[in-house]
Design a protein around this nucleic acid. Structure first.
Lengths: 224, 224
DNA sequence: TAGATTGTTAATCGATTAACAATC
DNA sequence: TAGATTGTTAATCGATTAACAATC
């Protein structure tokens, strides 16, 4: 969960990277409206982000805008897609075909964003050797075998917390470069392995905490 | 998407709040092992977070630890649950019963974390008046009617981006206090409405960017 | 020109990390 | 006591925001 300084090299702040897909998806709607130019204040207004933040973010990408006019929509989109690597497809295996796992398999944006899930794994005998959304599902014991046939860069972990580390170890041993961890528990891995943690629970924590804020008594009176 | 200064009042950093569910889930495993005490360095080691960060986080909660021993596991868990409001159940409606929507409905942790989804809405006639995981599904036109019957604090939006604002407006009009937005597009809302955005795409952006980093040529040679 | 916008540099703000005193 | 840990205060680091010059 630690933010290593891997952004130092290029100097692009991590939050900027995370905002880029947002810009991209918004700009597609602008393109559909056949608007050739879009200005930072316009984007800012729509996306509720500070306009100077947007200008700053774009400057990291070396996109040049036109004074008084803005940026060329199609150029922005192209630069974003190149930067985010949407045209370079990375293969991925997903482990844990539960509710969330199935939803991820069906999430159609991954394809446009340059990730292709090429096999799924589980331990449930009922689903092994079946297909979800045209994706073949195998027993986890076949992971090594399948990755030898078609190497993948990304391993997606959607198993319960107590199984996650074991799966991560297997993925690392098998040569996966990046792990996308939806298990809600942190993983140990060598420094050269990219780990991205996505946890739904932290979102709910924020919401509930903010709801509490309206009723300060609840925790201001709490005895330490 | 803008970070307002709503954390100023209590002085607790937003990242701290987001880490709390992680601590909670880890501490449950410690409790299961019947370990009475747990120290910050031990947690740090397991969760890959800086130990002083953990001590700092706990200090915001006014938990007191024992020098040389650590914290009482059960006390930590209790304080975390109180702070995160796990014992105060908030009702929620979910709109958009697609793949992700269905996965969220089945996500069992929400119950423990104090959120209960009490109805689902969609426009697909095939699923209206059916049930998913014992949850009744209605047409979106019945939203106002249903919320009048049983008010909810939280609205969960899992519809496509171009439908999201419309649904948000409906929720706000109906008196929802917080919106959890999975649509991937930002929402306009009055300041008193709590908005939490959860987007899967930013996670993939990070992964792909870090994978690129290993091959700097790809974007260092990119013509601006 | 006046006004709107880009884009850079500086200031501010917030979070993390380091240093260190206190304690058992 | 020596060593390990808490917990606070200070320093550092990184990101956002503000200020402002340049441009069309």
């Amino acid at each position: 969960m630690k933010n290593t300084k891997d952004n130092k090299a290029s100097g692009i702040p991590v939050p900027t990277i995370r905002r880029l897909p947002l810009y991209h998806s918004f700009l597609l709607t602008i393109k559909n409206k056949e608007r050739k130019y879009i200005s930072a204040p316009d984007i800012a207004n729509e996306l509720q982000i500070d306009p100077t933040q947007i200008i700053k973010d774009f400057s990291y990408l070396n996109v040049k805008g036109k004074t008084k006019v803005g940026y060329v929509t199609s150029v922005l989109i192209k630069i974003l897609e190149e930067f985010l690597g949407y045209h370079i497809s990375r293969k991925a295996f997903i482990v844990g075909i539960g509710n969330l796992g199935s939803a991820l398999i069906k999430y159609h944006r991954f394809h446009n964003e340059g990730m292709e899930i090429t096999a799924g794994f589980d331990i449930n005998p009922e689903i092994i050797n079946t297909k979800t959304n045209n994706l073949k599902l195998f027993h986890i014991d076949q992971f090594q075998e399948k990755i030898n046939e078609t190497p993948v860069d990304i391993g997606i972990i959607v198993v319960p917390a107590d199984q996650a580390q074991k799966i991560a170890d297997l993925m690392i041993k098998s040569g996966v470069k990046a792990i996308w961890n939806f298990s809600g528990t942190p993983l140990s891995a060598p420094d050269n392995i990219i780990i991205e943690n996505t946890s739904i629970d932290s979102g709910l924590a924020m919401i509930k905490w903010k709801l509490h804020e309206n009723k300060p008594l609840i925790y201001k009176n709490r005895m330490l």
